[in-house]
Design a protein around this nucleic acid. Structure first.
Lengths: 238, 238, 238, 238
DNA sequence: CATGAATGAGTTTTCATTCAT
DNA sequence: AATGAATGAAAACTCATTCAT
């Protein structure tokens, strides 16, 4: 948060405010506060429950969603949810994790696989976008709500996230080294640009008419060739 | 006492305030028991208050932020906030509106101004990114929290948003027509790609080392020329 | 899970509850995100809860009563009340409805039953006064607090109220037509006079020594014969 | 409040409730807590201010009315009210007192004046109803809101109220003694009946078409002669 | 005479969570 | 496997009142 410092009497009070912020201090994760990474009770209906949570978190945001909302989607009582997960926060972590994990696995296969940088980047882009089709809610929640995870979970989930970034960046850097991509490229900014572009899809997919297929192709071409017409290419610098 | 007219961005939000006010609806039947009075809501410290709200909404999300958080930042009591705005929702609308309006005005000047499509698109991109510098919180809130506005406000705010989209799309379409941009471009998807890329900046600006200036230039070049090295251009199709 | 049907007086009030529920209106656009569930509100202790509400509303008035007051009477936590009713306003509607409904039913049986106008009016008067004995709080609340109901509920409750008025008026008019009552009577004013007299009882019953029985008899005689001594009747015109 | 005792765990908690009731313990009036009986600051606009308070208290009830409501009616700021009265409670006392005082004076003149019991009762009834015409709000507030006065004020105001009752009762008793009224009359109940009838007028006057004049006459006749037709008088006992 | 700014103390309502069954 | 009943803790919002100007 890049905010200007406050002036006047607010300053000291603001410091007090920050103290309050740590709020409910969901431990800092040391003794694995709460959810832990693996051994979670799992039951027959668990996937269904988590689907519902994803749907509701995606629609209303984590803080805007209530456990009642989730129960409503499932047609069960609110209290019954606690048979499936120990807390709303843990539900969020499960949803976020599901939103990024296999996703990362597919990306890794592509990034470390064969093909030119162009081919691999195209593949990554498609792989990045395609889960929106069948797990859009999970992806949306991962992208926009993981910031609300307690520190421990956030770190765990953040790892996947940074790993994906690195895969994109590695491929791009490889392309530059190989002479496929422009030598003057800022590979970090290019990575962020591509991810921004791709991640935004989850925000409007379904409202726009384009299929995931078309979006993937169009975006890949756009990233590789740019907007400017080929015969105009030489004069393209602004 | 015929309520002074409102100036600036507060105007439409204040309208929303009135929607909420007027006692729960079961007055005594007399047509608005009480003389005219137009609960205006602009005071000396209003801008400061809204800055604080933007900061807190940006950091915690609308639903995750409490009015106490905002008061803490200001060093005033929580109840005192209600002297400045009639509800948290209205505060959100004011923040969102401020997050997009001038922004739209600058964009319009550029989009309808002179220059080639390339020049104008570059200008738009820069104009789109630059408010992040001095109004990052407002922009972030507008981008990620406007979905939580009540229907009336959301419609009002959504208008700005769609207007900006249209400006981008018009310039791109113009570029295609003028032969500057590729004829096979899907202008809608290109617009969404560019906006996705640009909007994402508010999510990481400050964490990455690049300046707004550099980001604008790099993104513009990226969009126009693509990743692929020029001498490789002919073979760029995947 | 298609919500069990409600029985008894809770039904219409629960309808009002639904009016208030359904999140502030800005859902996510999907038509009622969530499976059917019909927040019914009838639990084992509901009658006890409503008794307490009636008692507190009667003693302090709707606006002067706090939900904490009600909880105190019950010996439960204030928040627990909301397990039984969805809002204080709905609690008021339930109390008001209970304050008038059976009451109306008894009155209807008498008004449309057999007997001379005098007999039926006497019956009505007694029936109107007697609920004060075992439901005094409900009656008092109905009489003095229904004005604070939200418009929807007020209309629903008001219907009972006007129906009772009509029953009295019909009997009086019948008496005039039958020649039992004075031909020069303003039946509307007579109705209002009798109701005023009878309704006032709830305000002082318990503070005065008279029994409901005695009050009913005395009032009936008073209404029928007036104050003036019989042998003085001929000169009674003021 | 004639309520059944609570059973179960509620009982002891209910006792605690009663303790809370004394609430804000507006002293018991000993050192003349607050308003006092006479020496109140009075200013040019004071009557206007109290009119507005009466209007608002009548429409919304004391607890339902806010000082903002009163200020709205006057077109001044809420804080400005405190120039005219020291607290909302005091405003209520002023309104209540005005609602009954001259009213009592007129009644006393009539009750202790000349004329038959019938004439004097008719006069009282008219005098009791007529202030509704030009001070309806004051009367309504006196009748329905005086219960919310702090103990000291309530006692002061209650005195007027009981005095009026006594005037009615004295006249009726006189009529019985003089043989004008039925010897079998319960004078206390008759008094309460008449007052109930008359007080109710403030609740519907203005909604019904009848003038104060007509109401007074009709009610007087009704009380004196009853409903039953004269030639039917002998058989009127139910 | 009146107001702008502020606040302390509530008040209703929400909600995640618990627990006996 | 699920639920009814309840609660603690907070949340937004209200409101009478104060006070310097």
């Amino acid at each position: 948060m890049k905010s200007r410092p406050l002036r006047g009497p607010a300053a000291s009070a603001a410091r007090a405010a920050l103290e309050r912020k740590r709020r409910k201090g969901h431990g800092d994760g040391r003794p694995d506060a709460g959810a832990g990474n693996g051994r979670r009770r799992t039951h027959r209906r668990s996937p269904e429950i988590i689907d519902a949570a994803a749907r509701v978190f995606a629609a209303r945001g984590y803080h805007g969603a209530t456990t009642q909302d989730i129960a409503d989607v499932l047609g069960i009582r609110q209290a019954s949810l606690y048979y499936y997960f120990p807390s709303k926060e843990v539900a969020l972590e499960i949803v976020c994790t599901r939103g990024v994990e296999d996703f990362f696995k597919a990306a890794r296969a592509i990034a470390t696989g064969p093909g030119s940088a162009r081919e691999r980047l195209t593949g990554l882009l498609r792989a990045h976008i395609s889960p929106i089709l069948d797990r859009g809610d999970f992806v949306r929640v991962f992208l926009t709500q993981r910031q609300f995870l307690p520190p421990g979970s956030r770190r765990r989930v953040g790892k996947w996230s940074r790993a994906v970034e690195r895969l994109f960046e590695a491929v791009i850097r490889g392309g530059v080294r190989a002479g496929e991509f422009r030598a003057d490229l800022d590979t970090r900014l290019a990575t962020l640009a591509i991810l921004g572009m791709a991640n935004a899809v989850s925000g409007w997919y379904g409202k726009e008419k384009a299929s995931i297929e078309r979006i993937g192709n169009e975006f890949a071409t756009l990233m590789l060739k740019g907007l400017v017409a080929a015969e105009d290419g030489g004069r393209a610098a602004q």
